[in-house]
Design a protein around this nucleic acid. Sequence first.
RNA 1: UGGGGUGUAGCCAAGCGGUUAAGGCACGGGACUUUGACUCCCGCAACGUAGGUUCAAAUCCUGCCACCCCAG
Length: 373
Amino acid sequence: MEQLSVSADKNRIIVGMSGGVDSSVAALLLKRQGYDVVGVFMKNWEENDEDGVCTATLDYEDVRRVCDSIDIPYYTVNFSKEYRERVFSYFLDEYRAGRTPNPDVLCNCEIKFKAFLDFAIGLDATALATGHYARLDKKNGIRLLRALDADKDQTYFLAGLTSRQLERVIFPVGDMQKGILRNLAAEAGLSTAYKKDSTGVCFIGERNFKQFLMQYLPACPGDMIDINGHIVGKHDGLMYYTLGQRRGLGIGGSKDGSGESWFVIGKDMQRNLLIVQQGEHDELYSTALTASQINFISGCAPAQEFQCTAKFRYRQSDQPVNVTMHGNGCTVDFKTPQRAVTPGQWVVFYDGEACLGGGAIDEVRPLKKIIIK
RNA sequence: UGGGGUGUAGCCAAGCGGUUAAGGCACGGGACUUUGACUCCCGCAACGUAGGUUCAAAUCCUGCCACCCCAG
């Protein structure tokens, strides 16, 4: 694992513990290396899920068990206020605007590696460690590298960070395979060894997403139309749908239909219309995008124009692109058309193993313009 | 009102006397997944109604009901 050079009298490391197996093992590894490890659990969401379950309470139980078994102190810290102000408000604003934000990228920038990092440093720690699957190369400057386990790589979510933030961060499990990590957890008798990986918006967790949004953004029903201008269904509110979405449209078969599924291909915010199309067609694909407020981990773009690979969503294979900077923004041209690239989502750039940075997508250039007849 | 046509699951839609009554869409569940999606897997329900013919009827016949089209 990554080594951290520390002086003998100052070797405290704060581990951000989620109650999952990855951060549990991160703490375990650091403890075994002799660091003064302190586990800290962040509680950033106050409400229970739709079943009335507070997953944070359950997760904290796991943190307690793990910390007890590896014999380190543990605490909890609450950044709910910061999360609401810096992440959740943006999240809602984006949905109101008809876009599809990625709150977890922002959460890392604003909470985990800002508010929480400051907190950790305030506890006189040398570094903050988390269970992220990512690696850091600190030889000359700081580079964010993909995890060794390509299937678990989480650099996509870290693309909004800067080298300055990463200076005092370590990712102890970034060079481990998930399977090996679980075995290690099991051998050490950690209670989280076989715990299912958590998914869903960080801190909010898995839940019926539409129902969740409805609590904050009231329904605003309207029509679904196809490119012929025919009304083919009703929607509950444009904010509840995203480009490329299939499920939840409720459109059955019709006399003249092809029998294929229907997908969301656009939104008309002015007229409150959801534009849908049966089957996968060119309107669903795009050839380029523009993004603003691009963040480069190194602090600046590699060049005014450069070629690299990019992802438009987590767990997508890398796509070759050409990036042209203009100010803080850029245009990204795709080598091959991409399906359902969505405003609000993040485009993240890679140069081989290195994650360069990324930014929120503003607009896309469709392979075929949507023209309602 | 007269003539014609159609009635199979939430929606399309196969079926033409003997099938466990296809398939697709939708929907539900699961897998995958620290965003939202996509994808994959599994599940899912029906012969308008009442009689008749027949060993056997979703399939043939009759009445009724509903809807559609043409005529008026």
